[in-house]
Amino acid sequence: MTLHCTWCTPIRTFLRDTARGLFIVTHSGLAMVGLGAAALVLALWWQPQWLHQAEGALFDWLRERQVLLSWLPENAADRATAVYLQDLPRPQAAVAVWLGRKYKVAPEPLAALVAEAHVLGKKYKLSPHLILGVMATESSFHPYVQSQAGAQGLMQVMTGIHVQRYEAYGGKLAAFDPITNLRVGAGVLADAIKLRGGSIEDGLKFYLGGYELTEDGGYVGKVLAEQALLDQVAAGVNVPVQ
């Protein structure tokens, strides 16, 4: 005697339809993945900078999580005090190149300092070439110079006296960061000029030695002469490196 299963047929139909639907969805999904991959390859071929950006984002993500740290190098370019000359206006780039030739310093770090000097010049209402002239005279653009009196960095700021100015930048060790030293030094210079009634010459003397200074040893003349040369370079004059 054969038993008739009244519910087997619907179940078989349901399972068959389900299997067919899964096949269709899976097949369509794989096709979509393939089309998406092809579109991605085409897009990266058409816009290769997207690939570089994606690689950079991936490397940054790996670095932040210290994944494969043993072979993945640190991206130190973001910490370098340097910019490309072509990213500056032509007069600023000319000044950076001229200073590099004169003081035997790479032009890219100088380009960053020149650009920052222009920012600070607007902030403190000073000639950026005056600020650069002070740097040239004080340190010849070498950021780790230290005097016997304790003046440090590009602008030869007395770190012990102006330590509070460095607090906003993380402490007195920031004196050896070129941009930080430039910013602090420009602020000290602006305050010195203001304190001496707006006189550039008297402000430079005060910047050099404070109230106790009696003879500047030609310091003011050197700074102003450097400023005048930089003005000519920026104006397009062919100034020889002396």
Rank of each mutant, 00 (worst) to 15 (best):
P109G: 04
E108C: 04
T81H: 05
P240V: 01
A19M: 09
A175V: 06
G198S: 08
R16Q: 13
L51T: 12
S199T: 08
Q164Y: 09
Y169P: 06
V83G: 02
Q146N: 07
K102M: 12
W61N: 05
W98R: 05
V33P: 00
E55N: 07
T214A: 11
R183S: 14
Q86G: 07
L72E: 07
L208P: 01
A235G: 01
W7T: 13
S147G: 09
L230Q: 10
P240H: 05
L230I: 06
K194I: 02
K122T: 11
L72T: 11
V25T: 11
H118Q: 12
L224N: 06
E215C: 00
K122M: 08
L213A: 06
P107M: 01
L88V: 05
A76R: 11
M135G: 02
L173N: 11
P73I: 05
L30D: 01
R101D: 14
E116C: 03
P107H: 00
D60N: 10
L224H: 00
T137G: 00
K172Y: 03
L35E: 03
I179Q: 08
A37L: 15
D231H: 10
H142N: 12
L132K: 01
L44S: 02
A38F: 14
E215S: 02
Q49V: 10
G217L: 04
N238A: 15
A228E: 12
A43V: 12
W50T: 09
K102P: 02
R79P: 00
P143T: 09
K123D: 07
G29N: 09
G21E: 12
